[in-house]
Design a protein around this nucleic acid. Structure first.
Lengths: 183, 183
DNA sequence: GTCTATACTGCGATAGAC
DNA sequence: GTCTATCGCAGTATAGAC
C-alpha cells in the first residue's frame, strides 16, 4: 500500500526502528542504511532526527470503545484496553518510545495532545458533577501510571500480576473519579 | 561537608547537571570541564556515563510521613507529598531524570527498587484484605502516574490545577486501593 | 597512583557538487 | 533530488607524564 516514494520509505523504516529501539538508540545513519539511501537524504526530507521522530511515532489512543459504553464499568474497560497486548502497536510501544523521548518539548506536547484528544476530552464530556475536566485529566494520569508501570518501568509486580485482578482493582480506583465526588 | 576528593567533586557536578539538564543533554566532557578536570578522569573513576548517572542520581521516596499515620486519609497525604514542591529535589527532579533515562535497564531497576523500598513494600505491610501486595504496587503506579503528568509530561491541566482539589480527588482514588475491596 | 594528552569511532547536521 | 565531503561533538580507551 506504500507508494514507495523515498520519503515514505524513510518514514516506514524510521518508525520500525524508533518503536523497536527507542529514540536514543536509533541513528539517522542506521535508518538510512536499512533503507538503502544516504543519511543526508533523511535530514533533507525531515529536517532533523527529532522531526523525523515526531512525524513517524504517535500514540493512537484506542480508548473509544471503552468510552462509548455506560459509565458503570468504564474504569475496568479502560484498564482492560491498556492491558490488551493486541493493542501494543498503537498504544504501549509508541507510548514507551515517546515517554523516553520527553526531553524534547515537542514530543511532550504531541503525547499530551494525543492523550487529551483520545481520552481526557471525550471523557470530560461524559462526566457529571463538579471538576469534570480535572477529573478526566486525573483519569488520564492514572492510565499513564499503569502504562508507566507496565511498559516504561516494567515493574515485575505489575507485569506478572493477574490481568483480571489488575483490571478489577485498578478499574475500581479509576471509577472513583468517574462518579461525582460524594459530599 | 564535601571532603573535596576528585571523585566527590565529579559526583557533585554530575548530579547537578543530570538533575538540571537530564541524561542525554549532559556530557561527560561538560561535567569534566565544569569540575576543571580531564574527561578521561571521569571514566577512570566511574567506568561509564551510565554508571556515573546511577551513582549520582536516585529518588529518595519521602513517603514515610504519609505512610506512618492511619489508613484513613493516607491517599490524600501521599498525593500531598507528591504535590509538595519543597520535596522536588528528592522526588520530582530525580524522578524526571530517571524516567527519561529508562532506556537503560539498570536505571529502570534502580527506580523500581527505590519506589518499592520507600512506597510499595512498607505500604503492603499496612494493608488488610486480599491482594495486599498487588494493591500496594498499584498505588505506586498511581503515584507514578501523577508524577508523570506533573513533571514528565507537564500536562497543563494538572500542573495548573488547584493543588487542594487534586489532593482531594486523586487522594480519594488512591484510597480506593487502600481499603479492602468490597464484595 | 593520579591525572593529562591524544586518538579512535560514531553521531547529527551542513555545504555544495552532480 | 541525490550523493560526497566535512564539521563539530559525543563516549571512551590507551599511553605516559607527574
Amino acid at each position: 500500500m506504500t507508494v514507495g516514494t523515498t520519503r515514505e520509505l524513510i518514514a516506514a523504516e524510521a518508525r520500525r526502528q524508533f518503536m523497536a529501539q527507542g529514540y536514543a538508540a536509533t541513528s539517522v545513519r542506521g535508518v538510512a542504511g536499512a533503507a538503502g539511501i544516504d543519511p543526508a537524504l533523511v535530514i533533507r526530507h525531515f529536517g532533523s532526527k527529532e522531526q523525523l521522530f515526531l512525524a513517524t511515532v504517535d500514540v493512537e489512543g484506542p480508548f473509544a470503545p471503552a468510552l462509548a459504553g455506560p459509565l458503570t464499568g468504564m474504569g475496568e474497560r479502560l484498564v482492560a484496553l491498556v492491558l490488551d497486548e493486541r493493542l501494543s502497536g498503537v498504544l504501549r510501544t509508541p507510548y514507551r518510545a515517546m515517554i523516553r523521548a520527553t526531553d524534547s518539548a515537542a514530543v511532550r506536547e504531541q503525547l499530551v495532545a494525543a492523550m487529551e484528544a483520545t481520552l481526557a476530552r471525550p471523557l470530560a464530556e461524559r462526566l457529571d458533577g463538579p471538576d469534570a475536566e480535572l477529573r478526566a485529566h486525573l483519569v488520564a494520569a492514572q492510565v499513564g501510571g499503569l502504562l508507566e508501570a507496565l511498559v516504561i518501568l516494567e515493574d515485575p509486580a505489575v507485569v506478572d500480576a493477574d490481568a483480571a485482578a489488575v483490571a478489577r482493582l485498578y478499574g475500581a480506583a479509576v471509577s472513583t473519579l468517574l462518579t461525582p465526588p460524594s459530599g
